[in-house]
């Protein structure tokens, strides 16, 4: 069970949070302009990597805010926590 440092509340147990999949996938501004393939890329394609992965998390049983984390999937180390709209501080 991770300890996650919510950018709004501080360090809390993982059980207070909900994972929300890969981060930095922006909803296209003009979906109607997209081909089926382009739309499918946004809709379905997600990375599943061994190493540092950028993820969305929600402090569901806390402040209810969404934010991003950078987590190394090989050892669950959280390398960075940052607010929505911000750039990750690690690569």
């Amino acid at each position: 069970m991770f300890l996650i440092n919510c950018p709004f509340c501080g360090e809390r147990e993982q059980s207070e949070f909900k994972a929300g999949g890969e981060a930095h996938i922006e909803r296209p501004k003009q979906p109607t302009e997209l081909s089926d393939d382009e739309w499918a890329e946004f809709l379905f394609m997600r990375k599943n990597i061994k190493g540092v992965q950028f993820e969305r998390w929600n402090h569901a049983h806390g402040c209810r805010k969404w934010f991003n984390i950078a987590r190394d999937t090989s050892n669950d180390q959280i390398k960075a926590v940052y607010k929505m709209g911000e750039k990750p501080t690690v690569k």
Binding site: G20, E26, R27, R56, N58, R64, K65, W66, M84, G85
Partner: peptide
């Protein structure tokens, strides 16, 4: 909430 916070802030 998700849309409000992340797509349409």
């Amino acid at each position: 909430e998700d849309y409000l916070q992340t797509e349409w802030p």
